[in-house]
């Protein structure tokens, strides 16, 4: 039989091919940086490798299934007991939440402040954690078909995981808060001081830069999303402060925190659909950002101080009603 002519046949030192490949590779990298068309083409091409992603996730699925099938009765009973306990604690908390939410709504009505809406969500399952030791990303089993969009916040049962950075038809890729390329605006739950939490590339450490030496921040403080920037809804736990290094000679402190979410242990995640931020389309980025900032007495926003005035009236009325 005559051998079939191979697809790429060439001599041993293909310098021209190497040059061609290098030019192509640099062209692709540049184009992806610049043109959004390449990004959408990429999301279609990612569907090509979906079978490989599914294939390599099989062994860990198998191990998990095997562990469950062969785990002994005692450990199942233990786990059951633990879950029941957790359920009890959580349902207790939900009951208290219900009354607190009602009270919160009532108080906000008294202050004429708008009520924050519930954030709708869908659940997603982990397909694979990143196979690259130098980035912190993961792939989940929801894609464009489920309404996932780029920039969407992702949670696990305990806190913020990160945001969606690329979407294909059936899967999407999540950049975690611990990645060195990620930063999230946060505030201290205790006193509302606002900072930025930056990833470091290590799963268990976040870096809080530019903390003034006089700021009231302590070890153990809970950092929640501040909602600034409009990407993450407000009030979701992000990290707990683990270390505050004060040096009297420095103007800033070194603060590090540990993410609350546990991406290496969770399998199920929530994709949030926060309400769209106020429409500022048609403006350039810096301008639209400047438009969103306002302060009492701001001439561009004459009603900025009105809320506090009405709040004052309401408070006075309450006081008058409450007085015997």
């Amino acid at each position: 039989m005559r051998p079939i002519k191979p697809l790429f046949s060439y001599g041993p030192v293909p310098t021209y091919r190497m040059l061609l490949c290098a030019v192509l590779a640099f062209g692709l990298m540049f184009a992806e940086h610049r043109f959004s068309a390449v990004e959408s083409a990429r999301s279609h091409m990612t569907s090509i490798v979906a079978p490989i992603q599914w294939l390599v996730s099989l062994p860990s699925e198998g191990v998990r299934w095997g562990a469950m099938a062969f785990s002994d009765k005692q450990s199942l009973i233990d786990e059951n007991g633990r879950l029941r306990e957790q359920l009890l604690t959580l349902s207790n908390r939900v009951q208290r939440m219900a009354s607190l939410t009602a009270e919160n709504v009532h108080l906000r009505e008294l202050l004429n402040a708008p009520n924050p809406d519930d954030v709708p969500y869908i659940t997603a399952e982990l397909l694979s954690l990143d196979s690259d030791p130098f980035t912190q990303q993961m792939v989940i089993n929801r894609g464009r078909r489920d309404g996932v969009y780029i920039g969407q916040p992702v949670m696990d049962a305990s806190g913020l995981i990160g945001q969606v950075v690329s979407v294909s038809a059936y899967t999407s890729r999540v950049l975690m808060v611990a990645d060195a390329n990620h930063a999230v605006p946060v505030e201290i739950n205790r006193n509302g001081l606002r900072f930025i939490a930056q990833g470091t590339g290590q799963l268990d450490t976040l870096n809080i830069p530019s903390v003034p030496a006089t700021a009231d921040i302590r070890e153990g403080d809970l950092l929640v999303t501040s909602g600034l920037g409009g990407r993450f809804p407000q009030g979701y736990p992000v990290a707990r402060v683990t270390q505050v290094k004060r040096e009297s000679s420095q103007a800033f402190m070194e603060v590090s925190a540990e993410p609350i979410a546990q991406p290496e242990r969770s399998r199920y995640f929530l994709l949030l659909f926060p309400p769209a931020p106020p429409d500022a389309s048609g403006l350039g980025d810096p301008e639209s950002m400047a438009r969103q900032i306002m302060w009492p007495g701001d001439p561009a926003h004459p009603d900025a101080h009105r809320i506090s005035e009405e709040a004052l009236k309401a408070a006075l009325r309450l006081q008058a009603e409450g007085a015997p």
Binding site: C21, L28, M29, V38, I48, D132, T135, R173
Partner: peptide
């Protein structure tokens, strides 16, 4: 494509 790296990085 699988790792989500910039397109062309591993190719190069």
């Amino acid at each position: 494509l699988i790792e989500g790296a910039p397109l062309g990085q591993n190719a190069l």
